[in-house]
Amino acid sequence: MSKTLYKVTFLNAGKVYELYARQVASGALWGFTEIRELVFDLGDGVVIDPTEERLRDEFGNTRALHLPIQSIVRIEEVERKSQSAIRDAATGEKVVTPFPMPAKPPR
């Protein structure tokens, strides 16, 4: 039997974050939703997703995330994890940090 998996979509600093977690509950703090056991890709492959890496850097050591109810856009119970994302709240486009390019192209 697999554990329940939730996709949590919430607003943070003008961006829409999509994270995956194993536990979602009404928190002990009034007006907050408690998100626990965040799920990230293991990253054992050759290709590394920069968005997933950024989310892991920001939330990797988080035991519990307490989100204000008004910042939550949606909580979905899903069967499997897909790609986590950070999107611009106004346009909905993914916010991706581009790979640094050299100042001059090599000759």
Score class of each variant (00 low, 15 high):
residue 15 K to E: 07
residue 71 S to Q: 10
residue 39 V to L: 05
residue 96 V to Q: 01
residue 1 M to V: 01
residue 80 R to T: 06
residue 16 V to P: 05
residue 103 A to W: 08
residue 91 T to G: 05
residue 5 L to P: 00
residue 35 I to T: 03
residue 93 E to R: 15
residue 58 E to Y: 13
residue 61 N to Q: 14
residue 79 E to M: 14
residue 8 V to Y: 12
residue 57 D to R: 15
residue 37 E to W: 06
residue 47 V to G: 04
residue 59 F to C: 08
residue 88 D to T: 03
residue 26 S to C: 11
residue 45 G to C: 06
residue 53 E to C: 02
residue 106 P to R: 13
residue 49 D to Y: 05
residue 97 T to D: 15
residue 1 M to H: 09
residue 21 A to S: 12
residue 25 A to E: 12
residue 44 D to N: 07
residue 105 P to W: 03
residue 43 G to W: 04
residue 92 G to E: 03
residue 41 D to G: 08
residue 66 H to N: 13
residue 52 E to N: 12
residue 35 I to S: 04
residue 69 I to Q: 14
residue 21 A to W: 05
residue 18 E to A: 03
residue 18 E to Q: 10
residue 96 V to F: 02
residue 38 L to Q: 00
residue 33 T to Y: 13
residue 72 I to A: 04
residue 26 S to K: 11
residue 57 D to E: 14
residue 78 V to D: 08
residue 102 P to F: 07
residue 95 V to P: 05
residue 61 N to M: 08
residue 17 Y to F: 07
residue 99 F to M: 13
residue 37 E to T: 10
residue 47 V to Y: 10
residue 74 R to T: 09
residue 17 Y to T: 02
residue 74 R to N: 12
residue 90 A to C: 12
residue 76 E to A: 04
residue 3 K to Q: 07
residue 105 P to I: 08
residue 4 T to S: 11
residue 24 V to C: 01
residue 59 F to D: 02
residue 3 K to Y: 07
residue 5 L to C: 01
residue 95 V to K: 00
residue 34 E to A: 13
residue 19 L to K: 00
residue 12 N to D: 15
residue 55 L to K: 07
residue 86 I to V: 14
residue 103 A to I: 05
residue 42 L to C: 04
residue 78 V to H: 01
residue 107 R to H: 10
residue 16 V to T: 13
residue 86 I to Y: 01
residue 63 R to A: 07
residue 53 E to D: 15
residue 25 A to S: 11
residue 48 I to H: 06
residue 33 T to A: 08
residue 106 P to N: 13
residue 69 I to P: 00
residue 88 D to N: 11
residue 31 G to R: 11
residue 51 T to V: 15
residue 19 L to W: 06
residue 7 K to W: 00
residue 30 W to I: 05
residue 78 V to M: 12
residue 25 A to V: 08
residue 19 L to Q: 00
residue 78 V to F: 03
residue 3 K to N: 11
residue 48 I to T: 12
residue 74 R to D: 13
residue 82 S to R: 15
